[in-house]
Amino acid sequence: MNLTSPNESILKVQEIQSYISHYHILEEVTFEVPRGSIVALLGRNGAGKTTTLKSILNLVTVKEGEIIFEGRPIQGLTPYEVAQRGIGFVPEHRAVFRDLSVEENLRIAERKKGDFDKKREMIFELFPDLKKFINLRGTELSGGQQQMLAIARALVPDNRLLLIDEPSEGLAPVVIEQMIEVIAELAKKSTVILVDQNFLVTSKLAHQYVIIEEGKSVDRGEMAELIGDQAKIHRYLGVA
């Protein structure tokens, strides 16, 4: 049951510091994600964007700070407990299960029996190719189809927050356009945190942005404002 108002933050990340092995990767990252919005995490390669997503899921060690999802702290929970709270993750590199069929890849994401059957129509409307290739194995799909499947899988359970990492990586421009449409459609049903090196993708989709540089969140605001500030874009993202 949704007890929070639509404008309230669904996620608050407060001054988190994360480590991979003994390396201090995130030094101080702070941001909030309003419910129903798309927030883009921006920054150069190695800035700590993916580590921020992994910190939310507790896939890396968060030693300091607080992560609050729907009013409750989630740091210290195991990754599967975080997922069970309603956070879906679409990792980079088209993370489908190669030996499972398209249908099995979708069914495995069920948190309650019948989750997939309830959303079958919606998913196949968003991703018609998946319906066509439902019996093919993950390995037999093209890169774009695998990416679509990875996103579709995160839609099967009732996730209220989706973390999508590099969805356009290695995809043809035509497929990227499709992807943008799909993510825009997803945002109507779920809040999204988006990481993508392709600024064209994030600028088209996101309502808000957070810039991460060398493990610190250095700037955040409305995406529309950032698009108009070429100097800032050049300074932090190196995009002309």
């Binding site: 896939l59 990754p79 599967y80 997922a83 990792p91 299960f97 099995e104 495995i108 948190r111 899988r153």
Partner: peptide, 24 residues
């Protein structure tokens, strides 16, 4: 069975299975 499919998923990528909410 669903449990069998999770076992295959664990073989392929255990972290991914965890991210789907499974106590692997």
């Amino acid at each position: 069975s669903p449990t069998g499919r999770v076992s295959i998923a664990i073989r392929e990528n255990e972290s991914r299975a965890k991210m789907l909410g499974y106590n692997t």
